[in-house]
């Protein structure tokens, strides 16, 4: 077994142990929040809304809500884990060891993806109580959720590298991520918006991720898949490069 593989396995195991050890803080809250969304928006209000893009409102919002929980959990897992490693200085355990930068990124991002996808699975299982989910394209569904999770895990990592206090790792989720997610077409189809606001919405990268994921379930999307995947892959490549540059330079980690 190569040294790099052992290092990656150790880091990944440590990351997964971390969020499963505090499952009450990491796995239960999204399950409760999303159940409330299903009850209030899906069942109580949704029945009065009628159909959206040819599907019941509940069927329409479930993929978006699953994706929303994947995004927020992937992001916050890496942001809080890496920042607390920096704060407690145990990131030094990695910096003194011969661990390549890409392994450090893969280990933390892997932890974020593991939590994001686990929460996504929990929310999916809960949604089955409210709606019968059909899968239109499993490949699109899995690739979109995996790469979106990777993308936001990388975002959380960069946020943690830049952060100087715990406040700094809550600013982006609260003031950027949440508005972009809510305005990213979780609760409505972009076609309902006037042309101008449809154009504005297309500047929101989360729109592409939610639409692609929804396509995996429902087979309908507001945006062509090729655009969506290009945007997702482009962001993943850009954020990975930025994180790689920062960690290898010791930005925010070495004085």
């Amino acid at each position: 077994m190569s040294a790099n593989f052992i290092a990656l396995k150790s880091l990944l195991t440590k990351e997964i142990n971390r969020f499963t050890r505090i499952w009450l803080q990491t796995l239960v809250p999204p399950a409760i929040t999303m159940s409330l969304y299903f009850v209030i928006f899906g069942t109580l209000i949704g029945e009065r809304i009628g159909t959206m893009s040819g599907f019941s409102y509940m069927e329409f919002i479930v993929p978006g809500l699953i994706m929303m929980s994947v995004i927020t959990n992937s992001y916050s897992n890496v942001a809080s884990s890496f920042f607390s490693s920096k704060f407690q200085r145990n990131v030094e355990e990695l910096l003194v060891a011969p661990v390549p930068t890409w392994i450090i990124i893969a280990g933390y991002v892997g932890g974020g993806v593991a939590r994001g996808l686990l929460v996504g699975c929990i929310v999916t299982v809960l949604s089955l109580y409210f709606v019968n989910l059909n899968i239109a394209n499993l490949g699109v569904l899995l690739i979109s959720v995996l790469f979106t999770s990777i993308l936001f895990s990388l975002g959380g990592l960069i946020n943690a590298i830049l952060a100087k206090s715990y406040d700094d790792i809550s600013i982006i989720p609260n003031f950027v991520l949440t508005p972009l997610t809510y305005l990213g077409g979780v609760f409505y189809s972009l076609t309902l918006l006037p042309d101008f606001w449809q154009g504005v919405s297309k500047a929101n990268p989360i729109v592409y991720m939610i639409n692609t994921f929804r396509y995996g379930f429902l087979g309908v999307t507001d945006i062509p898949l090729v655009y969506s995947f290009s945007i997702i892959f482009l962001f993943v490549a850009a954020l990975f490069s930025l994180a790689y540059w920062m960690i290898s330079r010791g930005y925010g980690l070495r004085s």
């Binding site: 190569s2 790099n4 396995k9 150790s10 880091l11 355990e93 060891a97």
Partner: peptide, 9 residues
């Protein structure tokens, strides 16, 4: 964990 970072089985 530290042993793992150094590639120790």
């Amino acid at each position: 964990n530290q042993a793992g970072y150094y590639g120790v089985t």
